[in-house]
Every structure is written in structure tokens, then in C-alpha cells.
Amino acid sequence: MAAVTDQMAPGAHVARKTPKGTFDIVFRNASFLSALFVLLLLAGIMVSMVIGGWPAFREMGLGFLTSSVWDTQNDQYGAWPAIAGTLSTALIALVIGVPLSLGIAVFLTQLAPPWFKQPVSTAIELLAAVPSIIYGMWGLFVFVPLFAAYVQVPLSNIVEGMPILGTILYSRSPSGLGILTAGFILAFMIIPFIASITRDMLDQIPSVLRESAYGIGATTWEVVRHVLVPQAGVSIIGAIMLGLGRALGETMAVTFVVGNANRLSGSIMDPGSTIASRIANEFNEALGLQLNALIALGCILFFVTFVVLVIARILVARVKSY
């Protein structure tokens, strides 16, 4: 590259056309191949997951998806507890994270004074830069003890014996670890993604729309509710789906706080596991069919996140182009 730049110095002659022509073709093909490589990567991930997990799928059949047994002694593996854990932690993360993110996006676009907007935006985006493992440390050493002492113990005392709530919210051993804790940590991890995309979408809405709503006497809340949200609607759902994609595949933070229990429990206060945490936990000791079963779990995770992310990108892109 440097050589080419030098060639372009004032002394460049038309006589150099031939080497330039060769370079032109090489450069074009190199960039084309690099772009194709991106396609190849996704295809490669897909194929390697299917092939790596195939022995487990073949051995266990469809029962792999529905079975709750994870028995390394007898080589019996079922994915259901991990799938259920993945879905429930991600769902909890959305329930907590989405209102927070939307509130933040509204604050940044409608309420924050201009001098305040930039630093707050940066701070929110930096939440996304903090590595997953640090969220895990924070979760395990700071959040978990507080959560056990001030939420799990009192809540268990209240709901004990109640129908339904007594099952869902009762913690048999209030250690602070569990599905709900993982959902909480995930919520903070997906906030920056949902909030910053929503902020960009709200910023893109022509200000004439906002101004005319204010002009007929609408309050800020009414402008947000009746003008901005309907305008940005689909893309906000896209942003939420992107957050969901993050939450489904998040590994280290969840591994720290989810409790890594292989059993399925009816309570969101009890330890569980997610697909990603199960893989991270067992992979290095896994041999034979267990290894295939873990890759098969990865395969399931791949297809679930793939579908979620495809929908997300379609929804986000649709609004961007208008």
C-alpha cells in the first residue's frame, strides 16, 4: 500500500499503466475475496456446529431437545434445562432492560440539555465496552450478596406457601445465584445496545413532526407516546431483538451468577444454567459424546440467535432507509 502511495507522487507517469493495471485486478479480487470470506465465516460456523453436534443429535434424536437428563456417567444428554434457562434469563433481561433502555433513549433525545447529552451518551455506550467477565465479577461479588440478603430472603418469607408465586419466587437456598440474578445482570448488559439504537432512531425523526405536536399543545410525554414511538415503532422492536440476541448468547457474566445447576426448577430464584454457561463450564473436561452434546447445544444456540438477529436486522434496516 505504501509503495502505491509513493507511485502516486507527482512523478507518476502514464507509462506505468501496465503494473497499475495488474495491481488494479489484484486489489479488486482481494477485496472481493475478503468480502466473500465474511459469508464463508457464517456458513463455516453453521456447518461446523451441525457436524460437531451431529453425533449427539443422532444418538439422542429429537429427545435431545426435550429431555432434562444430563448424565455424563451414562452418556445421556438432554438440552431442555439449558434451553429453558437461556430463554428465561433472556426474557427477564428484556422485561427489565427494555423499559430502562427506552427511558434512557427518551431522556437523551428529549430531556437532556445539549451539554449533558454527549457525556451521558458516552457513559451509556461505555457500559457496552465493559467486558462480560467484569459484569460477572460485579454480579458475583457485589450484586449477588445484596440480592440474597435484601430480595431473596424477604421475598421467600412472603411468598412461602402461596399458590403459583410460592413456586416461581421461592428460593430453596437463598444464595443469591440463579436465573433471576442472571436476568438482572443481562439486563444491564443489553441496555447500551437497545438504548443507543433507539436514541439514533428517535434522533432521525424529522423535527417538524415533533414541533408540530408541541405546537398544538402536546406535552413531552404526549409527543413521545403519540408521535415518536409510532414513528420509530418497528425499529424499536428491531433494537429490542438485537438486545435479545445479545442476551441469548452472553456467556461469562451468566456463568458467574446463574448457579450452573443442571436441574430444571420451577422457581426463577433457583440456580439453573443456560446453553452458553453449560458450554463454558463443561467444555474443557468434556470427552466423546459429551463434547458432541455441548457442540449440539451450540448449534441450537446458533440457530435461535440467527433467527432473532435476522429479524432484528430486517426491522432496524427497514426504518433506516426511509
Binding site: S48, L242, L248, G249, L301, T305, R313
Partner: peptide, 22 residues
């Protein structure tokens, strides 16, 4: 390619680890 790249951008990193393992 642009679409697939955007998907890879948010793909779980653990899957990429598994891929390279394989």
C-alpha cells in the same frame, strides 16, 4: 454480505470459540 456481516457483529462470541475449536 453487508447483512451477514451485521449478523456476525452481534453473534455470540462463544459460538466463534466453538467454531475455531472445531
Amino acid at each position: 454480505i453487508r447483512f451477514i456481516n451485521d449478523i456476525l457483529l452481534s453473534a455470540p462470541s462463544i459460538l466463534i470459540g466453538l467454531f475455531v475449536y472445531v
